[in-house]
Simulated assay, not measured.
Amino acid sequence: MKLLALDTATEHMALALWDGSAVAEPGTHRLADGGAQSSAHLIPMLLAMLAERGLRLSDLDAIAVGQGPGAFTGLRTAISVAQGLAFGANKPVLLLDSLLLVAEAAHLEAPVASGSTVWVAMDARMDEIYAAAYAHDGHTWQTLAAPALMDAPSLNAAWQALPPACVAGSAAAAFGERLHTQGLLTVAGVTHRAQALLALACAAWQQGPKVAPEDAQPLYLRDKVAQTTAERLAQRLAKEQGAAP
């Protein structure tokens, strides 16, 4: 089994290659700056990883990609690259949950007890949050709450119904006291993201469906991906008025 995996759903670009080698060996995973950097550096970095291991695209069994939710441009970049490489090599695509990737990275950094609820909360900009809940049984992840787009009050209410043992992702830092994370374990879920990508790609090969490149589509939770200048101004004024005594 040989897999190439990529995720550019956040400001960190994660790349991974599985060729049967130990996870810690050089060339098996990389974490780099994402965002605007993704489109320029993604393909050269992927091809360099293959070259370092003496592999060609035709040697792969599949290409795994984080399908979201996440940044609009990042998702389009990752899916387009995965489709192009898979078409060229005549290989299937494995679609990965980008929020589950954060949960796995957090679990590698600060493992929680088996069966404990891990909520992922990623800053989605526009005063919203990408959120989902998972539990690890010691072998695989189970989805307890599917990825959704929420505001802070809605997520706090969801935590009342399904209390987290850990909150992973960028929203805790971005929203501060507006999210009720006091007393909870909070983990950014960045440091081990590339290793987590490798683990999820291997699990997807064993368990998940393999789709044709043309069927690989990003997971969008927001129809509107940007605000107008007037909308941004109105939102800023509303925040300022709300903070005024």
Rank of each mutant, 00 (worst) to 15 (best):
L108C: 03
V112C: 12
G66C: 04
E52M: 12
G88W: 07
V81A: 15
L75F: 10
G115I: 09
L57P: 05
A105F: 04
A103F: 01
E104G: 10
A121S: 06
S114F: 06
L55N: 14
A89Y: 04
G115R: 08
T73Y: 03
T117M: 05
A71L: 15
V118A: 11
E128I: 11
Q83N: 10
G84M: 08
S98F: 01
A103E: 03
A113P: 04
A103W: 00
G68I: 02
E128R: 14
P111V: 09
E128N: 09
I79T: 05
R53N: 12
N90I: 04
L94D: 05
A110S: 12
G68C: 07
F87S: 07
Q83H: 07
L55A: 15
L85E: 06
F87C: 07
V81K: 08
A121I: 08
L108F: 00
D123I: 13
R53Q: 15
D61T: 15
N90R: 14
Q83G: 07
R76F: 07
F87Y: 15
R56H: 12
L108R: 02
A78I: 09
D127L: 13
Q83D: 07
A113K: 10
V120G: 03
M49R: 07
N90V: 10
F72D: 01
L100M: 13
V65T: 11
L94N: 03
P69W: 03
A51C: 11
A51K: 15
L96M: 04
M126V: 08
H107W: 02
V118F: 09
F87M: 11
P69H: 04
L99H: 01
L95S: 05
G74H: 03
W119R: 00
S98T: 10
G115L: 07
L99F: 02
R53W: 12
S114A: 11
V93C: 14
G70R: 06
R56A: 14
L99Q: 04
A121N: 04
L95Q: 05
Q83R: 11
I63R: 01
P92V: 06
L95A: 12
V120K: 02
E52K: 13
S80F: 08
S80M: 11
L108W: 02
G74N: 09
V93P: 07
A124L: 06
H107I: 04
P92Y: 08
V81E: 02
A103I: 02
L99S: 00
E52L: 12
L108N: 00
A64Q: 13
A64S: 13
M49P: 00
L50V: 14
G74F: 03
R56F: 06
G115C: 09
R56G: 13
A78F: 10
A113Q: 09
G54Y: 11
L57T: 13
R125M: 05
A82P: 00
L99I: 04
P92L: 09
S58L: 15
D97Y: 00
G74D: 06
L60S: 15
T73L: 14
A110F: 03
I79V: 15
D127C: 08
A121M: 10
D127M: 13
V102P: 00
M122K: 07
L75M: 13
M49L: 05
